[in-house]
């Protein structure tokens, strides 16, 4: 795409990374894989380091870990699922999920990495499938096969409307939920990444303008300012998307466990 000497790179160059090794095999390992691995290690390291000392008055890493666990338990689980023992037991999974998403998202704004691993469909799709399998499994375990009936037949619907309502409920509960979970995370991070790429490419093109267009060079400060502003905005998006993914997983799990609500 050429726009007044501005060449926007094709999307493959922004998103598709050459494998470090194993190209062409199913063991290919590229930057996205490395980021996902680092995020797993970072999540593990954070909680191992925090759990080592177990001081009564938390400091440093332990403080961060305890505050975040409190936030997941009181801010997410208590608000959406409840405070029963079986609800609070989900703190482990949801905290790990939250931190994994934060760490895979945040690489989009760390200088020199600047690629959110969640801007490729693989990781969000896998996480959404995990949530999908979990809420169905929890519902079946808690309510038996009657869970499916409870999930698709809302109480108090007239008989004539039942086939339509059941169809809509099946689609919205078992098909749209995992799809929208995955697409929400993926599209948000991809949109942020494309915005950052657009403004950095624009700034680069203006700064390296030809001599007869030298009056463009001072203008390159404008895309730079926007680039920084969007980076700050992305900090918000990173945490907000992790929060939304976690809270929606909690809502779905809560709905499967306590269908009476």
């Amino acid at each position: 795409m050429i726009l007044a000497s501005l060449v926007f790179p094709p999307i493959d160059e922004i998103l598709r990374w050459k494998p470090f090794f194993g190209e062409g095999t199913s063991y290919a390992f590229n930057k996205i894989g490395l980021i996902a691995l680092m995020a797993t290690v970072a999540t593990l390291a954070l909680f191992i380091a925090a759990g080592k000392k177990r001081a009564l008055v938390p400091t440093g890493v332990q403080n961060i870990a305890e505050a975040s666990v409190d936030f997941i338990r009181d801010g997410i689980i208590a608000q959406t699922m409840g405070s029963r023992k079986e609800d609070v037991a989900w703190t482990n999974y949801l905290t790990a999920l939250f931190f994994f998403i934060v760490f895979t998202n945040v690489t989009g704004i760390i200088p020199f990495i600047q690629m959110p691993a969640t801007a490729r469909m693989g990781i969000p799709a896998m996480l959404a499938i995990c949530s999908w399998v979990l809420f169905i499994a929890v519902g079946v375990k808690k309510n038996g096969l009657g869970y499916f009936k409870q999930a698709v037949v809302p109480p108090g619907v007239p008989k004539a409307l039942l086939p339509l309502v059941v169809l809509i409920e099946i689609v919205s509960t078992f098909l749209v939920r995992p799809f929208s979970l995955a697409v929400r995370l993926f599209a948000n991070m991809l949109a942020g990444h494309l915005l950052l790429v657009t403004f950095s490419v624009m700034g680069h093109a203006l700064f390296l303008a030809e001599t007869k267009q030298a009056f463009f060079i001072p203008l390159s400060i404008l895309p730079l300012i926007l680039f920084i502003a969007i980076t700050v905005f992305e900090v918000l998006v990173v945490f907000l998307q992790a929060y939304i993914f976690t809270i929606l997983t909690a809502v779905y799990l809560g709905g499967a466990m306590h269908p009476e609500h």
Partner: peptide
Amino acid sequence: FLGIAFTEALAL
């Protein structure tokens, strides 16, 4: 935030 998440899905 839940409401925003559901509404925003269409734009995304």
